[in-house]
Amino acid sequence: MVDTDWAGDVLTNGRRMAESLMADECRIVHPTGRMSVDRMTGVVEPETTLVYEGRCKVQTAGGVASQVVSAAGDSTNVGGNVPVWALYLHLPVTVETAVSGDIAVIMRSRDPSLVGRRLRLVNLQSEKTWATARRWNVSEMPAEAEVDDE
């Protein structure tokens, strides 16, 4: 049997350590399914509600060689193997309101190339008793098109 007092202390310390590595900041929104029109520009945009804003960490894993094949059956790499990477977003364990389909935008990062990246939360992969963080599998979304006023 596990000594829950000792295990609780270890878990608290593990969560504190995991959060200390979350040096990035993100904003997570939930699409409402409604659209709104900007009266000044006429631009139609999806409405969202704020889910979370705060610390996070972008993480990759993998690099496993894989044969990538398109939906049409064509190989995208002419018969060779390419590395396939998994992309994750780590959040504090206290962030319980994020759901699959939410969108995270990296607002600040020690890696400037991550700032502005948009990540769709795919599924939570840290559903366990001794979780030290909420670790989400995510997929990167294309950058939003910029409007050129010229």
Rank of each mutant, 00 (worst) to 15 (best):
N77Y: 10
K57Q: 14
R108V: 04
V93E: 13
T94P: 01
S100T: 09
M107Q: 15
D102Q: 11
G73A: 15
G80R: 07
A61F: 08
H90M: 10
C56N: 03
L89R: 00
S109T: 04
V64N: 02
G73T: 09
Q59D: 09
S70M: 14
Y52E: 04
T60A: 10
S75W: 06
G62W: 01
M107F: 11
G62H: 00
R110D: 15
A71N: 06
W85H: 09
Q67L: 14
V51Y: 02
V95M: 12
T97H: 13
G63R: 00
V68C: 00
V64P: 00
G79I: 12
C56Y: 03
W85C: 00
Q67E: 13
G101A: 12
A104E: 04
S100F: 01
G62Y: 02
V82E: 09
Q59C: 06
D111S: 09
V82D: 04
S70N: 13
S75R: 05
T97C: 08
V95E: 14
V69A: 02
V58C: 10
I106T: 04
L87Q: 03
V93L: 09
L91Q: 01
G79W: 08
M107D: 09
V78S: 14
T76L: 14
P83H: 02
L89S: 06
A104P: 04
T76M: 09
A65C: 02
L91P: 02
Y88Q: 05
G54W: 13
E96L: 13
L87F: 00
Q67A: 13
N77D: 11
S100H: 01
T49V: 15
A98C: 11
A104V: 04
I103G: 03
L50D: 14
S66I: 02
A98L: 06
T60N: 07
V93A: 15
L89K: 01
H90V: 01
V105D: 00
T60D: 12
Q67T: 10
V105I: 03
P92N: 06
G80V: 04
V84A: 11
R108M: 05
V84R: 05
E96M: 10
G101Q: 10
G79E: 09
A104I: 09
W85G: 00
V99G: 11
A61E: 12
K57T: 03
D111W: 04
T76V: 11
G62Q: 06
T76Y: 15
D111I: 03
V84Y: 02
A86T: 08
G54H: 05
P83V: 03
V51Q: 03
P83L: 03
D102W: 07
D102F: 10
V58E: 04
V78I: 11
T49A: 14
V51D: 04
E53M: 12
V51R: 04
P92K: 06
C56S: 13
E96I: 05
G62S: 03
T76E: 05
G101S: 15
V69N: 01
A98R: 06
W85N: 07
P92H: 07
A72R: 11
L87C: 00
P83N: 06
G73I: 09
A71I: 13
V93Q: 13
Q67Y: 08
A61W: 03
I103N: 04
D102K: 05
V84C: 02
V84T: 14
D74E: 12
L50P: 06
S70D: 14
S66H: 15
H90W: 07
A104M: 08
T97V: 05
E96P: 00
R55S: 15
V105N: 00
I103H: 08
S100R: 08
V82L: 13
E53F: 01
V68P: 01
